[in-house]
Design a protein around this nucleic acid. Sequence first.
DNA 1: TAAGCTGTGTTTATCACATAAACACGGAGG
DNA 2: CCTCCGTGTTTATGTGATAAACACAGCTTA
Lengths: 240, 240
Amino acid sequence: MTEEHDPARTARVLWRDGPKPATRTRLSADTIVASAIAVADAEGLAGVSMQRIAEVLGYTAMGLYRHVANKATLVAAMTDTAYGAAPAPRRADGWRAEIESWATELWRVYQAHPWLVEVPTRSAPIGPNELAWFEALARPLAELDAAGLDVIGVATFLSSAVRDLARIALELDADQTAHAEVLAEHLDGKRFPTLSRLFGHAGPADDTADLGPALQHGLHLLLDGIELRLPTGKEPENHD
Amino acid sequence: MTEEHDPARTARVLWRDGPKPATRTRLSADTIVASAIAVADAEGLAGVSMQRIAEVLGYTAMGLYRHVANKATLVAAMTDTAYGAAPAPRRADGWRAEIESWATELWRVYQAHPWLVEVPTRSAPIGPNELAWFEALARPLAELDAAGLDVIGVATFLSSAVRDLARIALELDADQTAHAEVLAEHLDGKRFPTLSRLFGHAGPADDTADLGPALQHGLHLLLDGIELRLPTGKEPENHD
DNA sequence: TAAGCTGTGTTTATCACATAAACACGGAGG
DNA sequence: CCTCCGTGTTTATGTGATAAACACAGCTTA
C-alpha cells in the first residue's frame, strides 16, 4: 500500500502555493515535473521512477524529495501540467462546434500524453488546468438554456467518455495483433452473435483501433439529444 | 517496468484453455482468483500482492506461480471473473429499458468491486464475461435499425462513460472532504465563473458524489439522440 | 514393488522502487 | 570568522515481483 497521498500538500504544488520561492537552488519542482513528463511521454508512466527522473537530471533520487513531497504528488503535478491550458472560448462558432472542438482538443491531449490515461486517480486531484478544461466545457452547456439539462452531469459524462475512449484506443494501438488473435479465436457466433457479425471475420483490429470516430459519433448523438431540449421547436438539423 | 504481460497466456487462463486439469493439486487458479477478489473487494487493488494472497490461502507467494503465470494474468482473471455473467436479454422491455438496465447493472458491478476501475488495463484483455457484457449491449443497439448508427462506436462510448463515471464516483466517495476543500479554496468566480456558479458555495461534494444521476442523465440524452434516427418520424417520447 | 519421473509447493536470492534518517557542504547573517 | 539553514547525498529499510534451485509425494513402468 502506497503512502497516504496528502491532498492538501499536493494542492499546494499544483497551485504553486508554496511558501517561499527558495534561494540558491538548482533543482525545482518545475524542472522535475518537466523531466518526468518527458520520460512519461517517451516510455509511459511505468518509466517514471524517482531514480529515473533524478538520473535524467543528474541528481540522486532523494534530492527530488526536497521539492515534490512524494511520487503521488509528482504524478498529480505532471498530470495537471500535461493537460495544459484549456481551449479558449469560441462563442462565435456556436455551442455544438465549441463542444465538438473541446472534445477533439482533449482527445489530442491524450494522444500527446498517452500516459495520462494510466494515471491512477485515487482521490481526484483537481488542479488548475483540469478545472479550466471542465469550465471550458461547462460554459457553453450552461449558456444553453436547455430544458432540465444537468450541466455538471453532462460535462462529467462527456469528459469520462473521452478519457476512457482514449484509453481504449491507446491500448489497442499498443497491442492490436494480440488482441485481435484472442478475439478471432473465441468470438464464436453462438455465444456472441451480434459481435461476431459486426466484427466480421476480418477481426476488429482495424475498425476499433481509431476510436476517434466512435467519439465523434457518440458525441453527435448526445448533442442531438441535448438539442431536442432547446426552446422553440427548433428542429435538430442534420449535422452529418 | 513490469514484465511483458503475455496476452496469449492470459487468454488461456481467462478462457480456461489450460492444457490439463492437473492431478493431486491443492491450489488452483480458481481459488487464487477468488481469494484475490475477496482481498481486493476489502482493501482495493493495492491490497493484492502475491504474498498477501498466498498468505490468505496458507501458501507461499511462489506457490501461486504454478497456477497463474504472473500478477498481470492474475489481475486479468480477477477482472473478468468480477464482471460476472452479463445480464440476460430482455427484449420484451423494449430497447431503451434494456439499455438503461444494462447500464445500471454495470454500475452495480463497479459498486460491488470498486477496484475494477483501478485495474491498469494495458493491453485490453478481453475475457468471456467482458465480451458477453459487450454483446448484451450491442445486441439491442444492432436490432434497432437506426439510420447510420455505429453500433460498436456507441457501445464503446457508453461502456466507457459508465466505467469512468463509476471511477470518479468511487474516488469522490473515498476522498470527499479533502476534494471539496481544495475546490472551495481555489474556485474563484473570475477564473471559473460557470463552475463556481453551478457548484455554489456549498461545495460540490454532495452533488457530485453520486454520479448515478449523471449517468442516467447522459444516457437519457444519448438515447434521445438515437431515437431521433429511428425510421418513421416516430417522435421521441418524454421519458422523464 | 522399487527407481525414477513429474508435477507441486518451498526456500533462497535478486532486483527495482519508494522513502526514512543521518549526514555534508556552501553560502547568508550575525 | 563562525554558525545555521537550505539543499542535495549517503545509507538503510521495507515491500513487491519473480527467477532458480530444491524437496517431496505419488504415479509409471519395469
